[in-house]
Amino acid sequence: MIVMDLKKVEHSINLIRDFIESYNRVAVCFSGGKDSLVLTYLTLKALSEVKSSPKIWFIVCDPIPIEENRGFCQYIVDKWNLNDYGEIIWYEDLVKKYSKIDFEIAKDKIRCCMELKVKPLRKFIRDENIEVLITAIRGDEHHERAKESEISPREDHIRLHPLLNWSLIDVWSFIKENNLPVNPLYFKGYLSLGCKPCTKPVTSGFKSVDEIIEFLRRGGVHERAGRDIDKERVMEILRSLGYF
């Protein structure tokens, strides 16, 4: 049995808490995937310790979500009462507000991610004067993400990556140990979740979190194997433009 390193958990909660306590306008990204589920859970833990009253936003789901993911996100928003902690902003609504879809979705990966993911987020950060954006990227997920730091200064905000040093197994172990709800798409064989046109299942599916962990422990397949290969290749360009 793999047990999660409590020091890592404590460090992540402290990082989130210290920034939330020090700043007034903080946004947290919750895509519905396993990493951002853990991030959201840790954020709620951190918020329970925060003495100040910052304005919090939860940026929920993906620009073009898989239908079941939208449902799971709504389930978490309701189950964890995210409305009580901050304002819920659906990524789809950011796209409607800030982007114009006058191109073929997912044909040109850079343009698509730029128009649907990067631009709306940038404009939201600018319009709402977001000081800190907290995301759930992990270093072992992609070599471009491994170059990041936990505290990443950007032109107009600070990006915080509390899970940067967590492994994939850490995330699933944490989900299991804390009995967190699991997005049903993982049981259908998805290992990583993103926008519908660029995300595919890579296994025949799992019956439980234990099975997922066991599969990964044995080597399994790469976590992002189900993500569009063209997009994976241009990750460096996308990240330089503000994609996370």
């Binding site: 210290d18 920034f19 020090s22 700043y23 000081e131 505290i151 200064p153 905000h157 600070i158």
Partner: peptide, 14 residues
Amino acid sequence: YNTFKKMFNMLKKF
């Protein structure tokens, strides 16, 4: 300098 300005609020705690 620019990063210091962004991180300035952390002086509340550290």
